[in-house]
Every structure is written in structure tokens, then in C-alpha cells.
Design a protein around this nucleic acid. Structure first.
Lengths: 217, 217
DNA sequence: TAGATTGTTAATCGATTAACAATC
DNA sequence: TAGATTGTTAATCGATTAACAATC
């Protein structure tokens, strides 16, 4: 039984850990340029402002082995992180709703480095259908079942208006989508097997604004 | 000593709570249309798929009082949430970096309902300077100190390329900005008094992609 | 009054941090 | 060998969930 197979069922990676891992990866990619070969958890922790024990534990989830007194080989570590996070694969996705936010995500090059590839966008607005945004075609929403049947895409990115979110999510699920990246404020009710990643701007705005109030302005 | 004054110092609102509060607010705004006058924590919990005790505790942070057997007055509750989160105020912000993501945020109307108002954007790209995006002017980056001196803006939205993020953040701080909403992947090193809200897409992509892998595709 | 719900206190759970043994 | 760092086990901390008393 491989490490990943053990994790799959009994030992899911904690979400806080997953959220930190890309930070390590970006830091390592940055300092790789400086020709450093090995790096230790205390150095990473000091640079990223977090506990070194936590760095060790987080990195252990990727299956990488470090050497006492030396640390981790930076190339192995970068590879392990990319592999573990799926950033070096190509994960195809549909984008639903080519409005402001949707268009931005299509134009946003950085997804590529996260192994995410939006292969098509869908909208009901005839003004948007047929347009090419960030190199991605905006298709008629009614074409979704047909295309999903052929392409076996697993990820849906939801950038519709809030009121349409639940219906579109339901449609995605019936088309075989396994994971939904929900940028709307809608609370989606979906089968438990569907992975939902909520990324509503309002949550972050809430934290930021309240902290500002807490601090006494 | 008012409730908010007590919270300010000794009892900061937990971040998980703050992240959930906008969800309650959107739900309430939606069902307000149906003419419902009172709503109980168990009903909110059932609809939003979370524990009713948690709803009660979360709402208590806003200072609102409920009535046993009846629940909360929906109008009072909406008001309390908006007030507490700062969504009914106008919080002015500068946006730094009018690229794809920055442009999207400028066009994204929903910020208004979060009490956020981007009053100007800044960029170094002469092709962008002078343009109007989503009704917001893109100004020359060098104009930042001058404008911030006059306007007393507290919030900076950081949508620059990663490599420029730290420098721009430093400039924002020296211009009197108190809170930075960081959309880049850069790990910002700033004075402790500055509120930083990291919203890097890569963290969410990481969680989503890994959960997909965990589930066995 | 009876019953549902708030509001609070206690128990559980999970993540972070600390301690320490293993090892290069 | 000595010392720094990994890797693991234990202690702490905070958030969630459960229990229960107060109350409308």
C-alpha cells in the first residue's frame, strides 16, 4: 500500500495543511533561482513566518524524506509538492458563467501553473456566446451535456450570478462533474460525493473589514 | 462598555465565525423576500447545513438577542450582521495592479454590497494608465503618495504580479494603508499592525485538486 | 402549562505547538 | 564526536459539538 493509498481513506490531509503547501512551493521556486540545493524546515519556517515543526509535518504528507542536519533536497521537494498537489498534471475544467469574474479567470494565466486548464466556458447570454476570452471559447449553455459526454471533464468552475448557481451546479453534477469550485455566494446543496470548494469573496471581505474595525480603524 | 468595545481587545471574533457570517446574511436576504418575520437557529442551520448551536454562537457575536421559542427578528438580524461586518458602510480602497484579476475586481459589482468601494486603481503600465475600467480610473503608480495623502484610504487590494507584491505592499504601508487584501501568491512581510488578508487562488486550487485525487478521481 | 428555542457551560475533537528521541 | 535537524509522540490550545438550564 503506497503512501497516497493510505491517505486516501483513513488519513485525509488536513485542509490547513493543504492551504499552506502552495506557499512552500512558491517560496522554493523563488529561492531555487539562487542555486540553493538543500533547505531545512527551520529556514522555510523563518522565511514564511511559521513554526518549523509545522513545516516538517506538512511536508511529510507529500511523502518526501529529509536528512537530519541537512534538510530537504530542493528539487525533490518541489517535485514532491507539485506531484502531491496535482499542479504538474493537466486538470481540465469547464467554466460556467462568462461574466466579469468568469472572464477574469479565463484571462488569468496563473491557473496554468496550478495544473488547471479551462477548456471551455458556457453562458446563456447570446452576446457572449461565440466570443473568445483569454483564448477560451464561450459556448452556448445548452451545449454542455453534449460536450461533457465526450470530454470527461471532472472540474466545474462556477462564476454565474448567485440565483443561477444551484441550477447550474445540478446540471454539472448530472453531466458527470466531480468537483465544483464555487465562486458564488450561493450555498450549494449537492450529493456528498461531490467535492465543493467555496471561494466566496464575501468571506474574505468580512474577515478583513471586521479586523479593521477590531483594530479601532 | 459596549459589546463591540469588549470584543475589540480581549475577545477577537474567531476567523471561522467571521467566514460563516456572510453566508447567514445572504441566506436571510434571500428568504426575507418570502415575507418571513422571525427565524430560528435550527432553521438556519438546516438550510445551510450546519450545527444549530454554532449558528446561535456565531450570531451572538453580533450582539443580537433572540427570543426562546420564536428565534430572531429577521430584519434586526440582517441589520446586525451588516453592521457587524461593515457591509453597510462605505469602505474605500485602492486597487494596485490593473491586470486581469485587478480589472475583474474593478468590474465586479458585488463589492458594493460588501461595503467596499474601489476609488482608484494604480499601475505602472502606460497602456493602462488613463483607462476607465468598471467606472474606476487607472492612475499612474507614481501618483499614489500624493492621492493617499489627501484621501485617507485604509484598504489596499493587491493584484500585482507576484514579484512586485512586496514592494507595492511596502509603499501602501508607508502611505498609511492599514489593511491589505492580498490576491498574489507572495508571502508579505509587513509590520504586525497591518492587517493582511491572503486570498491566493492557489490555496483553493490545492485543496480542490487534492480532494479530487483523494477521492480516487 | 408544555414545548421549543436561546444562551451558557461542559465535553469532544482536531490542529498547533512543545518535547524528545533518532540520525546524519 | 558534537550539533543540528528530522520525525514522532505528548501537551496545549482553540473550535466544534453536546448537554442543560433559563425563558418565552
Amino acid at each position: 500500500m503506497s503512501n497516497s493509498e493510505i491517505n486516501r481513506k483513513d488519513n485525509p490531509v488536513p485542509e490547513p495543511t493543504l492551504r499552506r503547501l502552495p506557499g512552500y512551493l512558491f517560496f522554493l521556486q523563488k529561492i531555487k533561482e539562487e542555486g540553493i540545493l538543500n533547505i531545512s524546515a527551520p529556514v522555510i519556517g523563518k522565511s514564511l513566518n511559521c513554526d518549523s515543526t509545522q513545516v516538517v509535518k506538512d511536508l511529510a504528507f507529500t511523502g518526501i524524506k529529509g536528512r537530519p542536519k541537512v534538510g530537504y533536497n530542493i528539487y525533490e521537494l518541489i517535485h514532491a509538492l507539485e506531484e502531491f498537489l496535482g499542479f504538474n498534471r493537466t486538470n481540465e475544467a469547464f467554466l460556467m458563467g462568462a461574466g466579469n469574474l468568469g472572464s477574469a479567470l479565463m484571462s488569468f494565466q496563473e491557473h496554468q501553473s496550478l495544473g488547471l486548464k479551462i477548456i471551455a466556458a458556457f453562458d446563456v447570454d447570446t452576446n457572449k456566446i461565440g466570443r473568445l476570452i483569454g483564448g477560451i471559447n464561450v459556448l452556448d449553455y445548452s451545449k454542455l451535456p453534449q460536450l461533457s459526454g465526450r470530454l470527461n471533464v471532472k472540474i466545474g468552475i462556477l462564476t454565474t450570478p448567485n440565483h443561477a448557481a444551484q441550477n447550474v451546479a445540478d446540471d454539472l453534477v448530472s453531466c458527470g462533474i466531480k468537483a465544483i469550485w464555487n465562486f458564488t455566494s450561493a450555498n450549494l446543496v449537492l450529493p456528498g460525493s461531490i467535492i465543493v470548494q467555496n471561494t466566496s469573496m464575501s468571506s474574505y471581505a468580512a474577515v478583513l473589514l471586521r479586523r479593521l474595525t477590531d483594530s479601532g480603524y
